[in-house]
Amino acid sequence: MLLLAPLTAVMLLILIYPLGLTLWTSLYNGRFSFDAYAELASSTLFLRVLRNTFEIAVGGTLVSLLFGYPVALHLAAQPPRKRTAYLIMVMLPFWTSILVKSFALVAVFGNQGLINQFLGFVSGGTVNLPMMFNRVGVILGMINFLLPFMILSILGSLLSLDRRLILAAETMGAGPLRIFWKITLPLSMPGVLAGVLINITLSIGMYITPALLGGRQDMMVANLVDFYTRQTLDWTAASATAMVLLILSGLLVAMLGKVRGAAGLAGAGA
């Protein structure tokens, strides 16, 4: 117990105290009330942003799943040494600041970016596929960050799949497609579910990516908190919005803890 004291003190100071303060600010504005929450519930802006947040989070997660599953499948089929090398490549985005990555994405996907210039060169005209500062840009920026989480949790499920089940199915005459649909996919569902929940949880609180790569229509809840704090200086509304975001994320993490195979990632199994 004594050894835990310093850590407890740090946690109290940098986590619990600000959190408590936020909760307090959302409830106390000259007097104690739930007015801030009631206002949020009737605010068109907040509801619009909440819907945006869900659309972007779910969309980004689905794209991440679509790209992540084949990668995980390929990684699982590699010999261990090769797999390690490939995994390093998967983890590479983590070593780069999200700010730097966002600007790099503009260089690739922007109006004057590589892709549009290439398409223009090929077609002989001017191509301006709008891929930045809109929803496409937000999702592109997000999956860059989300994919490793998706790939790792699916890979975990695939690696724990007993190879002999595949061999058994092969001896019974099953082709690769049937083996995938009937055996590999159903048995990797815990990993898929964990990956999806982790991705939604992570993307629901996204802040920099929508701010840098999204358009005016792509404001998410975290950006709204920033808007209330710095633009309108309405700290009560900002705190209430932050609390709603916290509760939503908390619910998702709780669900994550229930998914087999994701317990370690959610911190519930530690």
């Binding site: 061999l167 199915a169 092969e170 005459g173 082709g175």
Partner: peptide, 11 residues
């Protein structure tokens, strides 16, 4: 390939 040999296998 294994799946075209018409075998049965018990593991």
């Amino acid at each position: 390939p294994t799946n075209r040999r018409g075998l049965g296998m018990v593991f």
